[in-house]
Design a binder for these strands. Structure first.
Lengths: 216, 216
DNA sequence: CGCGCATCTTTACGATGTCAAGTTTTGCCG
DNA sequence: CGGCAAAACTTGACATCGTAAAGATGCGCG
C-alpha cells in the first residue's frame, strides 16, 4: 500500500486537517480501483470506501464524480508520459526517427500495461462534463511530446515538411487506434486476434513511419 | 434452454403477440435514444419508456441490458457497412486502391455522422459481458469488407505482399484511431482541433496508403 | 479562549438494473 | 369449442449509485 505523501502545501511537517489530505488519498484510491477492478467498479462510493471515509466526503474536494475521475485520468496521463520517456531511454534511440518509434511503442506499452486507466483517459463523458484544467494540461503535455519529436525529425531531415501537425495526426491516430482496438478487446474478435500483439505493433509503427516519410 | 425463437411469421398477415414484436421496437427505440440524446441517456428504462412498455418488459426479449445494447450496436455495424458501400459507390472507385480509400473515408464519415452509435459499438463493457452472436457476426462482416479490399489491392499488385492481415491492421488502426479521437472530442483539446477535419482525414488516409505501399 | 469555518458524517431522494410475483393474452390440444 | 399452459407484459421490491442538505467535529486565527 502506498503511504500518504508528505503533507501538502499550506503547513509543513504535520497532517493538515482532519484526515490528512484526503484529496490525494482519493485519487490514489481511484487509481487502485481502476487498476485492479476496472472502470465499471470505479464509483464515487467505492473510492470513498477504499479511502475509508463516508460516501460524500469526496464532495469537499471535488465538485462531482467527473472531477474526481478527471484527477485520476490526469494522473494516468502523467504515467503515460513517463512510460514514453522510459521507452525512449530503454530503446537507446540515436536518431530522431528512433525517438519517434519509441513514442509509439511507449504509448502502446502503456495502453496494454494499464488498460483500465487508459480507457478512462479517453472517456470524456466520465471526466469532462466541463473541461478540468489539470486534465487538459496533462493531456497537452503528452501530445506535446509527440509534436516535439516529429518536429525534431523534420529538423534533422528524417521527415519531410515543416509543419509537424499532419504527420503527428497520422502517428497518433494509428497508435491510438491500435491501442483502443486492443484494450477494448475488439482485436480478439477478428482474425487479427491470432497475430501476436508485438507483431502488430511492429507492423503498425513501421507502416506509419514509412507513410510519413513518403509523403511530400 | 435457448428458446427457439425464429421470428417466424414476419408476414404482415398477423401481429405476432401482445405488443407486436417488441424486440424490434426496443432496438429502434435504443437507436433513437442513442442518436438523439447520446450514450449516457441510453438506460434500459428509458428504452422501455420510449417503447411504451413497463420497465421490465425488455427482460422477456433480452437477458439483460448488455444484450439489448448489443442488438443496438449490431444495427450500428450494419449501418457502418452500408455507409462504406455508399462511399465506394459515390466515389466511383476505379482502382482497388481507390476502393480502399473509400473504405477508410466511409468509416470516418459514419463515425462523425453518427458519433453516439459509433461510440456504443466500441464499448464492450456495455455490449459484451458475454459475446453476443449477432454482434460478432455484424462485426465480422464489417472487418471482412476491409480484408477483402486489401486482398484485392494485393491481387492487382497495387499493394505488395500476399497476407492481407498486416496492411489491414494498419489501415483499420489509423482510421479507427482518428475516428475515436474525433468522436471522443479529444482532438478539440489539442492543436489538431484547429485543422479542418476533412483535411485530417485526407492526410491520414493518404499517409497510411503510402505506408502500406512502401512496406516490403 | 472562543468563535468560524473547513472537514467529514448522516440522512434522504430520485434514478438505475435486476429479480420475484402477479396478470393478461395467445396458441394449442383434446 | 373449451380450457389450459405458457408466453408476454406489469407491478412492486431491493441494492446501488450520484448528489444534496443538514448535522457533527476539530483546527486555527483573532
Amino acid at each position: 500500500m502506498t503511504k500518504p505523501k508528505p503533507p501538502p502545501q499550506s503547513r509543513s511537517s504535520k497532517p493538515p486537517y482532519h484526515h490528512g489530505d484526503l484529496r490525494r488519498a482519493l485519487v490514489s484510491a481511484g487509481l487502485a480501483i481502476v487498476g485492479s477492478e476496472g472502470i465499471e467498479a470505479l464509483s464515487l462510493r467505492a473510492v470513498a470506501r477504499r479511502a475509508e471515509v463516508s460516501h460524500s466526503a469526496p464532495y469537499h474536494h471535488f465538485q462531482d464524480k467527473a472531477e474526481l475521475l478527471a484527477a485520476v485520468a490526469a494522473a494516468g496521463f502523467e504515467q503515460l508520459v513517463a512510460a514514453i520517456d522510459a521507452q525512449a531511454a530503454e530503446s537507446q534511440a540515436r536518431t530522431a526517427l528512433d525517438a519517434l518509434r519509441a513514442v509509439g511503442r511507449g504509448y502502446l506499452r502503456f495502453a496494454v500495461g494499464h488498460p483500465a486507466i487508459f480507457r478512462l483517459m479517453f472517456r470524456p463523458e466520465l471526466t469532462r462534463p466541463a473541461e478540468h484544467p489539470v486534465l487538459v494540461a496533462a493531456e497537452a503535455l503528452a501530445f506535446g511530446k509527440l509534436l516535439q519529436t516529429v518536429a525534431m525529425c523534420q529538423q534533422t531531415g528524417e521527415l519531410p515538411g515543416h509543419d509537424p501537425l499532419p504527420p503527428s495526426a497520422a502517428c497518433w491516430s494509428i497508435v491510438h487506434g491500435l491501442a483502443m482496438l486492443k484494450v477494448e478487446q475488439v482485436l480478439g474478435e477478428t482474425p487479427l486476434g491470432g497475430i501476436p500483439f508485438e507483431q502488430l505493433v511492429a507492423a503498425v509503427v513501421e507502416t506509419v513511419i514509412a507513410g510519413v516519410r513518403a509523403r511530400p
